[in-house]
Amino acid sequence: MDNENFGLAKSFSSAPVLSISPHTNFSQKEQTDIEHELNEQVGTTGEYVSEGFCFKLAPGQDQIGFMRSLKEKAPKLTDFAKGTTTLAFEFQEGVLVAVDARATMGAFISSNNVRKVIEINDFLLGTMAGGAADCMFWEKYVAMQCRVYELRNGEKPSVAMASMMLASIMRQYRGQGLSMGTMFTGSDKTGASLYYIDNDATRVKGRLFAVGSGGTFAYGVLDTNYRYDMSLDEAVNLGIRAITSATFKDSASGGVVRIYHVTNHGKWNLIHDAIDVSELHYQFEQNKGHTGRGNEGKPNKYL
């Protein structure tokens, strides 16, 4: 991890972390030792205390222990909808983000038309995997902090900094039950960049990621055809192709493909809003001379 960005982002992330910690709304008795230590490190008053919200934590003292025993006793309760295929990769014209649109609850498909790319602001995008609410909430929260930074300093924060804010929040709440696997991407003065952040507070800068249950299938297509010097058209087609084949193999992914392009000039564009993956599958298979039903070379056996 690059230490320059780390140092910069840390000073910003500590403030929002403090203001959302249960400290402000819970009595001193309910604080854990860990929180005490943390508060001592960063001081007792936050810089921005404007949100007026706070997580209701588990009754008792130990949220981490509570989550751990909850996982044992009721494994399904904390098991949010996880079926997803999201992918993003850097190429010469920026970053391409492609996602599917299926939301499942167990085997049940609750929607085939979900938006899994969160438009954080006009230069940041985040994808959604794991708990939808956690992703949505914290990425919007980062959007707010970015705006505050912009007003205060007269310039937009770097993507590295914004992503570090999110990672720091995840660090603060580690083990307390958040569920998030997001690809955080955006465009700043240095061009487009791509980070992977998850609820263990992993933050990795990288070139190519695929996240979710269909991610392994998407990697197969991506790794085979990926080149850094692709044109935008090639990149879009690769994204569509990877999502389509992942939705075919992975039953928890499906619906439509959405493609976003993050340019190198501080903007992102929505390229395709909704292409039906089932139609794409039939189209791709027919281009190969197949029927799309996977019965090539099989005898017409029906009894």
Binding site: G83, A107, A252, G294, N295, Y302
Partner: peptide, 26 residues
């Protein structure tokens, strides 16, 4: 989410069995 990828309908009458493949989402 666990079903799909093609469907078949078997229609049985006293004299004939008809099997039809349906087009489904993939």
């Amino acid at each position: 989410s666990l079903s799909g990828w093609g469907a078949k309908v078997y229609l049985l009458t006293p004299t004939e069995l008809t099997v039809r493949s349906l087009k489904t989402r993939q």
